[in-house]
Design a protein around this nucleic acid. Structure first.
Lengths: 148, 148
DNA sequence: CATAATGGTTTCAATTCGCAACCGATCGGG
DNA sequence: CCCGATCGGTTGCGAATTGAAACCATTATG
């Protein structure tokens, strides 16, 4: 379908661009979202995302090739399953901030949506980026320093 | 080029999916990244991202239509410019977590990359999602609760 | 006035995507 | 053990999206 290895980056020195080169397409992050919420099998990913099967094949392979997913034999039986690696699980803050932005801006007031809760059923608080001294940070108070 | 209004969501009740419906393509988040770092003009976005001009036209229009960018007349002169709205600026945590994941996992050890710093030039600390009581949260300690 | 830059639009070829059909291997029930 | 269902894909094809380049009207600029 398409090449699995991607070693020419859109913008090699920008970490944002590199991340998007790896997971910044229409479906990869939804696959990761579902993996975080318990999906392991091809069919389960397909059912949850609604992605076309050939495209899912491609995405699972790419995510695996890039080390975000691992394919291992299911505990019982011979079936294979896809599980998040530590690298893949580390996308948690990305999925969480996407979720929180969506909750704030992509729903009409009063419209219901799913929520992320912790083990006690308590909703996860909103992420608020802050500097080391605790002051809140945003676009106006930060800037990119180019690599040396 | 393509329809500007998007009112049939991939997965209507999931905020992650809704956000990705709005900005989850190859280029939109890079446009937002550059807008956060000072780009305002068509040419400047084109130069920084390297995106094809017709696609850039489409993305700027979509981001504007969805309220992440606003098109206003530049302070001096007659030229137009694109600026982030409050909604667009609120993607800051998303861009930041994408950046931090990239820094951790998309660079070889010792490879240099740009860095996000605050007003004092101090690097922005890593985001660590935590529950209200302060315990760190990750994929294993949270789950999605479906809308009621 | 000539030239260049800006902010696009148009055209066209190449990729990518979505859909449906197909397929071999396995599972599960009778 | 046989039949049907399920799993995990692959294949083929038409449609949609993208990328590259050329073109163009409207300002700036020397």
């Amino acid at each position: 379908m398409s090449s699995i290895i991607n070693s020419d980056w859109t913008d090699p020195e920008c970490p944002v661009a590199r991340t998007l080169d790896l997971v910044g397409d229409r479906w990869s992050l939804l696959v990761v979202r579902d993996a975080m919420d318990g999906a392991r099998s091809f069919t389960e990913f397909q059912r949850r995302t609604g992605i076309a099967r050939n495209v899912l094949t491609d995405r699972l392979r790419k995510l695996t090739a890039h080390g975000l997913l691992a394919q291992r034999t299911a505990s019982s039986g011979r079936r294979q399953e896809y599980v998040l690696t530590e690298v893949g699980r580390d996308l948690f803050p990305v999925i969480l901030t996407l979720r929180q932005w969506g909750e704030r801006h992509a729903f009409a007031p009063g419209e219901t949506h799913s929520t992320l809760v912790d083990q006690h059923g308590t909703p996860v608080p909103e992420i608020a980026p802050a500097s080391a001294d605790g002051t809140l940070l945003d676009t106006d108070t930060t800037h990119v320093r180019k690599a040396p």
